[in-house]
Design a protein around this nucleic acid. Structure first.
Length: 152
DNA sequence: GCCAACGTTGGC
DNA sequence: GCCAACGTTGGC
């Protein structure tokens, strides 16, 4: 089982929305490296839910990958902001997963605390200018993050 | 294939 | 609002 970190702007989609809805299709990712990570996910993997562009930004909860290998339907929807006219329906360009709510971190773990705890090498979201929205998290770091929640 | 211009992300 | 980082686009 692997750990991941997935970013979302909470004014678009937050951990509270995921808690209400139970599961969510993680659509709208339009970056090839992030897409490749999504394709590497396996059912049962855990993902930290990160709130970006928030006050404060930080890790807001935990979810589980429950379905993999799903073509992102928004790429075929002309009404969607994620519409990709260059993606052929017979061989879709963008793939994603479905995640299920597991836990809300209250309070969330703010970015400032993550900076105290980890180096940018351990947790790439700490790297200046990092924009990747799907990131693998090594087991030891994941363990430590979960302990930070229990510690309050 | 190069690379400058441009757009987006996201912390502050 | 500012700005650094970096991905994408398009002219050549």
């Amino acid at each position: 089982m692997r750990h991941w970190l997935i970013k979302s702007e909470p004014h678009t989609y937050s951990i509270h929305d995921l808690e209400k809805e139970g599961t969510a299709l993680w659509d709208g990712v339009r970056n090839y490296q992030a897409r490749n990570y999504l394709r590497a996910m396996q059912v049962g993997d855990l993902a930290f839910f990160y709130h970006s562009n928030a006050h404060p930004p930080g890790i807001a909860g935990l979810c589980r990958v429950v379905e993999t290998g799903l073509p992102d339907p928004s790429q075929f929807d002309p009404a969607s902001p994620y519409f990709d006219p260059k993606s052929p329906p017979e061989s879709p360009r963008w793939w994603t997963v479905r995640v299920a709510f597991l836990e809300k971190f209250e309070p969330l773990i703010p970015l400032a605390r993550l900076r105290e705890q980890f180096t940018p090498e351990e947790l790439p979201i700490l790297r200046r200018g990092n924009r990747l929205s799907v990131i693998p998290v090594e087991a030891r770091v994941a363990e430590q993050i979960r302990r930070m929640v229990q510690g309050g």
